[in-house]
Amino acid sequence: DESNKPILLPNESQSFERSVQLLDQIPSYDTHKIAVLYVGEGQSNSELAILSNEHGSYRYTEFLTGLGRLIELKDCQPDKVYLGGLDVCGEDGQFTYCWHDDIMQAVFHIATLMPTKDVDKHRCDKKRHLGNDFVSIVYNDSGEDFKLGTIKGQFNFVHVIVTPLDYECNLVSLQCRKDMEGLVDTSVAKIVSDRNLPFVARQMALHANMASQVHHSRSNPTDIYPSKWIARLRHIKRLRQRICEEAAYSNPSLPLVHPPSHSKAPAQTPAEPTPGYEVGQRKRLISSVEDFTE
């Protein structure tokens, strides 16, 4: 099969070098950035008060330690540790928490760990991170309901609301924008112990962030949302095809390698009803078989 044979790379090609550099910018793992907010007593309706908090309760602090690993920003190499735009020179604080497994990295933009500057009256330095995160974990210690939209931002799609209760338990629920209701189930609340709260809140936030990324990708319907490693695979396959075309153009005697095509017509299947918005969006999480067989 010609399409699977190794090909020689061009010795000097600026377009090839640019493509390789672009490939280096696509990590081999999925990345997520999640905002974390603490809401104190009497702050449920005040964005400024929430963003001005420099610490929270003892249970909130224990919750943070379970979310991930504490890292010092100045020691991080952005090409190895995903920071979601946090500055490593102290502009966004000294520490944050991050978490990773074999296929993804997540960083938490924690408002109480970011510096509260006197010259920044409206807390814009914090909002440029927190307001651009799709998902926020809100530790609501106010005793009042927290409403979506209290923290203004164009991309605040989903809130994971943590409400501490007695007996070391917590109520965990989801809020989302109306255009996200087909992807996020907000109907079920959970009672979770303090011990298990970081794991549950983190998983709910990661799932909500993946759904938000799919939702946000609708602005470019021709580019369905893939995982990062599938995006790398697609980029490599496009690069291979372009090299083959350039080689055939410079030397017409060489065969032009095309991806294999299936001449056999697909079997006719009964027509199915058109899937609704929710089903269609969830299918976009699934990769096409052509990603692996071309």
Results as ranks from 00 to 15, higher is better:
residue 161 I to W: 00
residue 275 P to T: 09
residue 115 P to I: 03
residue 253 S to Y: 10
residue 93 G to A: 13
residue 34 I to P: 01
residue 217 S to E: 08
residue 14 Q to C: 11
residue 172 V to W: 00
residue 179 D to Y: 04
residue 59 R to M: 00
residue 222 T to P: 06
residue 257 V to K: 14
residue 70 L to M: 10
residue 246 E to A: 05
residue 155 F to W: 11
residue 165 L to N: 02
residue 110 I to S: 03
residue 49 A to V: 02
residue 42 G to F: 15
residue 180 M to Q: 02
residue 154 Q to R: 14
residue 273 P to A: 14
residue 204 M to G: 01
residue 249 Y to R: 11
residue 104 M to Q: 14
residue 165 L to D: 02
residue 22 L to M: 13
residue 218 R to Q: 12
residue 156 N to S: 09
residue 76 C to A: 11
residue 69 R to D: 15
residue 20 V to R: 07
residue 101 D to V: 00
residue 33 K to G: 05
residue 157 F to V: 09
residue 140 N to H: 01
residue 29 Y to W: 10
residue 294 E to G: 14
residue 214 V to P: 01
residue 105 Q to N: 06
residue 292 F to N: 15
residue 183 L to E: 06
residue 216 H to N: 05
residue 174 L to F: 07
residue 166 D to T: 03
residue 104 M to K: 02
residue 61 T to S: 11
residue 190 K to H: 06
residue 183 L to F: 13
residue 186 T to Y: 04
residue 24 D to L: 03
residue 14 Q to A: 12
residue 108 F to D: 01
residue 270 P to F: 08
residue 246 E to P: 07
residue 248 A to D: 12
residue 35 A to L: 05
residue 153 G to C: 10
residue 44 S to P: 03
residue 130 L to A: 04
residue 49 A to G: 06
residue 223 D to I: 07
residue 17 E to D: 09
residue 221 P to V: 05
residue 129 H to D: 05
residue 13 S to G: 10
residue 279 V to C: 13
residue 278 E to L: 06
residue 268 Q to T: 12
residue 140 N to C: 00
residue 23 L to D: 10
residue 47 E to Q: 03
residue 41 E to S: 05
residue 113 L to E: 05
residue 181 E to C: 07
residue 219 S to L: 11
residue 61 T to N: 13
residue 286 I to W: 08
residue 157 F to I: 05
residue 10 P to Q: 13
residue 183 L to N: 03
residue 224 I to V: 11
residue 128 R to P: 05
residue 175 Q to A: 13
residue 75 D to N: 14
residue 259 P to M: 13
residue 197 L to Q: 00
residue 201 A to I: 04
residue 14 Q to L: 10
residue 264 K to W: 11
residue 81 V to P: 14
residue 162 V to M: 02
residue 293 T to M: 05
residue 239 L to V: 06
residue 255 P to E: 13
residue 186 T to Q: 09
residue 84 G to I: 02
residue 208 A to E: 00
residue 61 T to F: 14
residue 95 F to G: 05
residue 173 S to F: 06
residue 169 C to Y: 07
residue 91 E to K: 15
residue 119 V to W: 11
residue 254 L to S: 15
residue 245 E to V: 08
residue 43 Q to I: 01
residue 48 L to V: 12
residue 6 P to D: 14
residue 170 N to H: 10
residue 144 E to D: 09
residue 102 D to V: 05
residue 80 K to N: 08
residue 61 T to L: 08
residue 109 H to F: 03
residue 223 D to P: 06
residue 160 V to N: 00
residue 129 H to Q: 09
residue 55 H to Y: 15
residue 26 I to R: 06
residue 136 S to F: 06
residue 259 P to D: 15
residue 202 R to I: 03
residue 214 V to N: 03
residue 176 C to P: 02
residue 141 D to F: 00
residue 44 S to F: 03
residue 142 S to V: 01
residue 257 V to N: 14
residue 192 V to T: 02
residue 276 G to F: 05
residue 138 V to K: 00
residue 172 V to D: 00
residue 97 Y to M: 15
residue 185 D to I: 02
residue 31 T to W: 03
residue 214 V to I: 13
residue 143 G to Y: 04
residue 225 Y to S: 14
residue 131 G to M: 15
residue 174 L to N: 02
residue 252 P to T: 09
residue 62 E to Y: 03
residue 34 I to K: 00
residue 208 A to K: 01
residue 257 V to T: 11
residue 275 P to N: 10
residue 50 I to S: 02
residue 279 V to L: 09
residue 147 K to E: 10
residue 66 G to F: 01
residue 156 N to V: 07
residue 56 G to R: 02
residue 7 I to F: 08
residue 192 V to N: 00
residue 180 M to F: 13
residue 98 C to S: 06
residue 137 I to T: 00
residue 57 S to E: 01
residue 272 E to M: 08
residue 104 M to F: 13
residue 175 Q to F: 02
residue 289 V to L: 13
residue 229 W to S: 11
residue 103 I to Y: 10
residue 229 W to Q: 12
residue 93 G to N: 13
residue 69 R to P: 04
residue 8 L to K: 06
residue 106 A to K: 01
residue 165 L to C: 03
residue 28 S to T: 13
residue 6 P to C: 08
residue 111 A to C: 05
residue 114 M to Y: 04
residue 116 T to R: 06
residue 133 D to A: 11
residue 4 N to K: 09
residue 260 P to Q: 13
residue 292 F to S: 15
residue 181 E to T: 14
residue 49 A to E: 05
residue 277 Y to M: 13
residue 25 Q to T: 08
residue 181 E to H: 13
residue 261 S to A: 11
residue 263 S to E: 13
residue 25 Q to H: 07
residue 259 P to H: 14
residue 270 P to S: 11
residue 160 V to Y: 00
residue 164 P to A: 01
residue 51 L to W: 04
residue 92 D to H: 07
residue 126 K to R: 05
residue 282 R to E: 14
residue 258 H to E: 15
residue 249 Y to S: 08
residue 184 V to W: 15
residue 261 S to I: 08
residue 241 Q to M: 07
residue 114 M to P: 03
residue 203 Q to N: 09
residue 93 G to R: 14
residue 162 V to F: 00
residue 91 E to M: 10
residue 183 L to R: 02
residue 15 S to A: 12
residue 208 A to R: 00
residue 32 H to G: 03
residue 167 Y to L: 05
residue 120 D to M: 05
residue 265 A to Y: 08
residue 263 S to F: 08
residue 2 E to A: 06
residue 191 I to C: 06
residue 186 T to H: 07
residue 15 S to F: 08
residue 182 G to L: 11
residue 86 L to W: 14
residue 211 A to E: 01
residue 190 K to F: 15
residue 123 R to K: 08
residue 183 L to T: 04
residue 199 F to Y: 02
residue 81 V to R: 15
residue 174 L to M: 12
residue 15 S to I: 11
residue 172 V to N: 00
residue 204 M to P: 00
residue 128 R to M: 06
residue 45 N to A: 11
residue 164 P to E: 00
residue 65 T to Q: 14
residue 81 V to A: 15
residue 72 E to M: 07
residue 196 N to K: 03
residue 255 P to R: 06
residue 211 A to F: 13
residue 17 E to N: 11
residue 65 T to E: 12
residue 33 K to L: 06
residue 216 H to V: 07
residue 198 P to Y: 00
residue 80 K to W: 11
residue 46 S to D: 14
residue 52 S to Y: 02
residue 87 D to R: 15
residue 247 A to N: 12
residue 180 M to E: 01
residue 104 M to T: 14
residue 19 S to T: 13
residue 222 T to I: 06
residue 84 G to Y: 06
residue 84 G to M: 06
residue 219 S to E: 13
residue 74 K to G: 07
residue 293 T to F: 04
residue 11 N to A: 10
residue 87 D to Y: 02
residue 281 Q to L: 10
residue 121 K to P: 15
residue 63 F to R: 00
residue 294 E to D: 12
residue 114 M to L: 05
residue 98 C to H: 15
residue 40 G to I: 00
residue 148 L to H: 13
residue 135 V to T: 03
residue 283 K to A: 14
residue 36 V to D: 00
residue 234 R to P: 15
residue 217 S to F: 11
residue 83 L to W: 13
residue 288 S to D: 13
residue 6 P to S: 10
residue 34 I to Q: 01
residue 79 D to G: 08
residue 27 P to G: 05
residue 282 R to D: 14
residue 46 S to E: 08
residue 160 V to F: 00
residue 89 C to W: 06
residue 261 S to E: 14
residue 256 L to S: 15
residue 216 H to F: 15
residue 287 S to Y: 04
residue 223 D to R: 07
residue 205 A to K: 00
residue 57 S to I: 01
residue 111 A to I: 02
residue 248 A to P: 10
residue 123 R to G: 13
residue 69 R to V: 09
residue 284 R to C: 12
residue 138 V to T: 03
residue 195 R to K: 13
residue 153 G to R: 04
residue 77 Q to P: 12
residue 24 D to E: 07
residue 220 N to T: 09
residue 103 I to F: 13
residue 257 V to G: 15
residue 173 S to Q: 15
residue 56 G to S: 01
residue 268 Q to Y: 09
residue 262 H to Y: 08
residue 213 Q to R: 09
residue 120 D to I: 05
residue 137 I to Y: 00
residue 29 Y to D: 04
residue 166 D to G: 03
residue 55 H to G: 15
residue 274 T to Y: 07
residue 83 L to G: 15
residue 164 P to Y: 00
residue 164 P to F: 00
